[in-house]
Amino acid sequence: MYTSIVLVKQVPDTSNISGQVMKEDGTVNRSKLPAVFNFEDRVALELALQIRDRFGGTITAVTMGPPRASDVLRECLYMGADSAYLITDRKFAGADTLATSYVLCEAIKRIGIYDFVFAGRQAIDGDTAQVGPQTAEKLDIPQVTYTEAILDVRDRTARVRRKIEGGYEILETTLPVLLTVLKDAAIPRPFSAKRVMAFKGAKSLLELEKMVEGNSLLYIDKLVHEYRGRSLFIPTLTADDLEIDVGRCGIRGSPTKVHKVESVVLAGSSPAKIENTTAGISSMIDSLLADKILG
């Protein structure tokens, strides 16, 4: 039986960026972009599910993000996570990787004891690969980054294959451990239709509060009780809930700041236009030969 926590992130689909997504302060206006489940985090969840399939245990998905990040938590439930936590607060906004790892670390400690913490290697919006190791350091546990496969788990020891420069290595690590996972480590299972039916109504505290706002017949405490009873409640943790140092959260707790953002200034002028004909290409080759670039 192993307890896993999986860190997931809702990311803007960076393959679909238009010009209007940057705010004046240089941060990203995420509401203008389609949001997706960071793929490597889905792979991380899959590895946690495989461990649960083999040895039993429980899986808790955790995300820090704006209220709408509960979308990815529902997707975690569809894949098979037992429970999910939304870590959200305006005070967390604008966090760099250091401030993010502080909040995640405090949230993990609050959620409880664990054997594994899983995360994708990196998120596609920043590609930094920093939050996993920064969180492991703050939790004071070992890490295995660039995980390619979990080979075995026994006697509270995991045998893991990880990528290294020019090859791979096999490590044995005592639990608990934090693993960051490469995209090829596993193929994430599709959502189970049964679980989609069961959990599509799962709601975070914020979403329940919204329902109450529009309906005077509903009472939030009753609603939470009801949703919890049906296992459809996504607990929310705020800065107050975590009793953390708000000076270490969000933009205040972030040592790195975006100073300037520019669209790319291109160095080159326009190229010599070569006709797509044998003669055109042939004369280009001539000048490359003359410049001793070719030949």
Binding site: Q130, Q134, T145, Y146
Partner: peptide, 21 residues
Amino acid sequence: IIGRDLAPRVASHTVSGLTAD
């Protein structure tokens, strides 16, 4: 791979700013 494994741990421990790539 080594630098990306090590630098974040050091930055986290020493509360330093770290920018990747």
